[in-house]
Design a protein around this nucleic acid. Structure first.
Length: 420
RNA sequence: GGUGGAGUCGCCUAGUGGCCGAGGGCGCACGCCUCGAAAGCGUGUGAGGGGGCAACCCCUCCGUGGGUUCAAAUCCCACCUCCACCGCCA
C-alpha cells in the first residue's frame, strides 16, 4: 500500500510501477475515487457538524421547538444518510484499489515481465563433481530409508512426504544451526502461529491477491500461513513502536503451507515443492530510512549466504526483475542453490525489502525521537527452508556408497557424526 | 463445549442516554523553585482524515461491526480478545 499523497503527487511514477510490475490497476480511477472520496468526506463532516449542533439545541428546547427540530431533522438526516452511503461506497472501492497499489521498485531492478529478466549478481562455490553416478534426493532418501512418498500420499495426497530416521535429525540440525546463527546476530527467536486470521494476511500483502495460494479454514475463519512473516508482522499490527526499540529483528520458525495451485504437475517428484514445510525466516522492522533498510537487506542476504557457505553449497544471488518481485517489493534478491540432479540452481531463499508498503497495510508505525509518528520499513529473507534445502544438502553431500557427509556446522546437532 | 466477569487517551481508573467537547491519578515533557537535584507548584500531554496562506478550525475513534435514538463510552445484537470456573484433552 502506498501513501495516498504520494500517489496524488506522483501519478506517473505509480503508473510506471504498475506497468513494469505487470499489474492490473487503474491509477486514474484510483485518483478519481480519492478526489470523490475527499469531497464526500468534507460534506459528511460538515453535515455531521450541523447534526451535532441540532442535538445540542434539542436537549435545551421545549416540546414545541422539539417538534420543529424533529421535522427539520427528517430531511437533514435523509441527506446525511445518503452522503454517508456514497462515502461508504467510494471509500470501500478506494480501499480495494489501495490494497493493489505497488511499491515503486528500486531503479537498479532489471525491468522485465518475469523471472526470465532476472540477472545473476554473484555466485559462490562450484557445483560438486562426482566420480560416481550421483542419485537425486528422492532415490537417495528412499535407498537409505529416509523418506516415504507413496505412503505419505496415501495419507495426505499429492506433494506429501514423510521424513524418516536420520533425515528427521538432519532437518532439525539445519533449523537449529540457523536459529543459533541468528541468535548470535541479535535476532530474537520466535516460534509463531501458522494458523492465522485474515487480518495479518492482508497486512503482509498475501491477501487479497494471493488468495488462491492459501489454505482456508472457513469453519473457523482461519487460514494456514505460507510463512512466519505473516505472524511476525501481525505481532506489531496497530502498534506505535518506540524508535529506541528499532530495529526489531526476529528469527521466526513455523510450519508453512502453500497450495501451489499455479504449479500443477511441476516439481511433483520429491521434496522440492511441497504443500507443507518448515522454515526459519529472518524479519526486520526498521526506521523509514532507505540507507538503513539497504543495510539490513545486505545483512539478511549475508546471513543466508553465510548459511549456504557453511553448508558448502554452491549458489548464485539473483537480482529479481520488476515483473518477478511482486506488488509490495522494492527490491528482491533470490538465492538459488545448486541441485546436482537438476544440473541447475533452484531458489532456496528470497530476500525482500518492502519499504513501508507492508507497514502501511498492517499499520506498524514508530515514533521518532522528536515525537513524529511514521510508518516503519520491513524486510524479510529465508534463513533455512526445509525440505527443499534438505534435498540440496543430500544431493550435494552424497558419497559413492549413498552415505551423506555432514557439514561441520551441523555436526554438533547430530551427536558429532561426520557422515550419515 | 458450557457458565460467569471484563475490555475507556502509554499504564491505572471515573463514567448506567444530553453537564463526556471523556474527569482523576501515574508516567512523560517543559517551566518555576534550587548551587544542582529530589520534593513541591504550574502548564502541556493520543491517533487518523479533511479545510485554511496562516493563527487556527471541523470530523472520526471509548475492543470490532451492526442496530435503537433528535442524541450512545453508556441501551440492544453479533463477533473478537482477556480473566475465572466446569467439562474434555496433548
Amino acid at each position: 500500500m502506498l501513501d495516498k499523497r504520494f500517489i496524488r503527487e506522483n501519478p506517473d511514477v505509480v503508473k510506471q510501477a504498475v506497468r513494469v510490475k505487470g499489474l492490473d490497476l487503474d491509477v486514474d480511477e484510483l485518483l478519481q475515487l480519492d478526489q470523490d472520496n475527499r469531497k464526500l468526506q468534507f460534506e459528511v463532516d460538515q453535515a455531521q457538524s450541523r447534526r451535532k449542533s441540532f442535538s445540542k439545541e434539542f436537549a435545551k428546547a421545549d416540546e414545541a421547538r422539539r417538534a420543529e427540530l424533529r421535522a427539520e431533522h427528517a430531511d437533514f438526516d435523509t441527506r446525511l444518510k445518503e452522503l454517508r452511503e456514497q462515502l461508504a461506497a467510494t471509500s470501500a472501492r478506494l480501499g480495494e484499489l489501495m490494497l493493489l497499489t505497488p511499491t515503486v521498485p528500486w531503479e537498479g531492478a532489471p525491468v522485465g515481465p518475469d523471472e526470465s529478466a532476472n540477472t545473476v549478481v554473484r555466485a559462490w562455490g562450484a557445483p560438486p563433481s562426482f566420480d560416481f553416478a550421483p542419485l537425486d534426493h528422492v532415490d537417495l532418501a528412499e535407498k537409505r530409508g529416509w523418506a516415504e512418498f507413496a505412503r505419505a500420499r496415501r495419507v495426505a495426497g499429492e506433494r506429501a512426504y514423510v521424513l524418516c530416521g536420520d533425515l528427521v535429525l538432519l532437518e532439525r540440525a539445519l533449523h537449529s544451526y540457523a536459529l543459533e546463527l541468528l541468535r548470535e546476530r541479535d535476532f530474537q527467536l520466535m516460534a509463531v502461529p501458522a494458523l492465522v486470521k485474515e487480518a495479518p494476511l492482508v497486512g503482509t500483502g498475501m491477501l487479497p491477491k494471493g488468495r488462491a495460494e492459501i489454505y482456508e479454514i472457513p469453519a473457523d475463519d482461519a487460514y494456514l500461513a505460507g510463512t512466519a512473516e505473516v505472524s511476525l508482522v501481525g505481532l506489531h499490527s496497530g502498534e506505535i513502536l518506540d524508535a529506541a526499540k528499532l530495529p526489531v529483528r526476529y528469527a521466526g520458525i513455523s510450519p508453512c503451507f502453500r497450495r501451489e495451485i499455479g504449479s500443477a504437475s511441476r516439481d511433483v517428484r520429491g521434496l522440492l515443492r511441497v504443500h507443507q514445510f518448515e522454515k526459519v525466516e529472518q524479519f526486520v522492522v526498521c526506521a523509514d530510512d532507505q540507507a538503513e533498510s539497504d543495510r539490513w537487506h545486505a545483512e539478511l542476504l549475508d546471513t543466508a549466504e553465510t548459511i549456504l557457505q557453511a553448508l558448502g553449497l554452491a549458489y548464485e544471488v539473483v537480482e529479481c526483475s520488476t515483473g518477478d518481485m511482486g506488488v509490495g517489493k522494492y527490491r528482491m534478491n533470490d538465492i538459488n542453490t545448486w541441485f546436482p540432479s537438476l544440473g541447475l540452481y533452484r531458489e532456496t531463499h528470497s530476500c525482500s525489502s518492502m519499504r513501508d508498503w507492508q507497514a502501511r497495510r498492517a499499520n506498524v508505525r514508530y515514533r521518532t525521537a522528536d515525537g513524529e509518528v511514521r510508518f516503519a520499513y520491513t524486510l524479510n529473507n529465508t534463513a533455512v527452508a526445509t525440505p527443499r534445502l534438505l534435498a540440496a544438502l543430500l544431493e550435494n553431500c552424497q558419497l559413492a556408497d549413498a552415505r551423506v557427509r555432514v557439514p561441520e556446522v551441523l555436526r554438533p546437532y547430530l551427536g558429532g557424526r561426520d557422515t550419515l
